[in-house]
Nucleic acid binder design. Structure first.
Length: 224
DNA sequence: CCCGGGATGATCT
DNA sequence: GATCATCCCGGGG
């Protein structure tokens, strides 16, 4: 469908201070890294706010979801099923609480380190839990700001082995090139508001999440 | 305090 | 397709 948008027209704050439904598709192609592993985001889901029954923010602020109510452009990390850590970018309009769940990514840098963290050589980040593992997430990072240092305009890819600035901190970078075709469909793994097309992915990517909804629901899907 | 439930993944049949 | 691992959180006693 749509090809790509240049986020540079907006400031960092302005870009994330919008509805997750707008930001989620535009976050495709962004680079996410910790200074060792760099990932290219290929699949996202928007979680709106208190009006979205599938959102963790539904029902108001609690200790677990408090970073969803914090500044846009920071991260919201939560534990899932006891074992996994999932990564969101906080993003919402003023007075609301929203986030974009990053469901899948392609490893572009630090492949061996990602494989080490994952304990395997394939399926490194094609799923929210796997992605969290490849990134080396911890709950201590919950709420941390994702803005790149303003002093450094370069890609983390180019400076990984030179600039210690990038280490021990999660950073998010806009794409340098067009990202390609974007597809959308229902979100995965939720039981409420299952029909809203708030899941977005790069149609040509080979690193998408398996998406258990496909196998669970059989062949009820046509817009994948 | 106890209890149940996940925005999941790995493994087995 | 089914099971289970595993733990934090939130709500109800």
């Amino acid at each position: 469908m749509v090809s790509f948008r240049v986020p540079s027209a907006l400031s960092w704050q302005e870009f994330f201070a919008r509805s997750p439904a707008l930001v989620a598709p535009e976050l495709l192609g962004w680079m996410l890294g910790d200074g060792v592993v760099a990932l290219r985001i290929v699949e996202t889901e928007a979680y709106l706010a208190l009006e979205d029954p599938a959102s963790h923010a539904y029902g108001g602020q609690t200790r677990r979801n408090r970073s969803m109510f914090g500044p846009p452009g920071c991260c919201y990390i939560y534990r899932s099923y006891g074992i996994h850590l999932c990564f969101n970018v906080v993003c919402h309009e003023e007075g609301t609480a929203g986030a974009v769940l990053v469901r899948a990514a392609e490893v572009k840098e630090g492949h061996s380190q990602a494989a080490l963290r994952r304990g395997r050589a394939s399926d490194l980040a094609n799923g929210p839990g796997r992605l969290g593992q490849a990134l080396g997430l911890s709950l201590q990072l919950d709420g941390a700001c994702l803005a790149p240092p303003t002093s450094c305009e370069q890609s983390p890819l180019a400076t990984t082995h030179q600039a210690p600035t990038w280490h021990s901190r999660l950073c998010l970078h806009p794409p340098q090139e067009p990202v390609g075709k974007i597809a959308k469909g229902p979100r995965v793994g939720i039981s409420k508001a299952i029909d809203l097309p708030l899941r977005f992915w790069l149609a040509d990517s080979t690193c998408l999440s398996p998406g258990r909804a496909r196998s669970a629901q059989g062949k009820k899907r046509s817009d994948d």
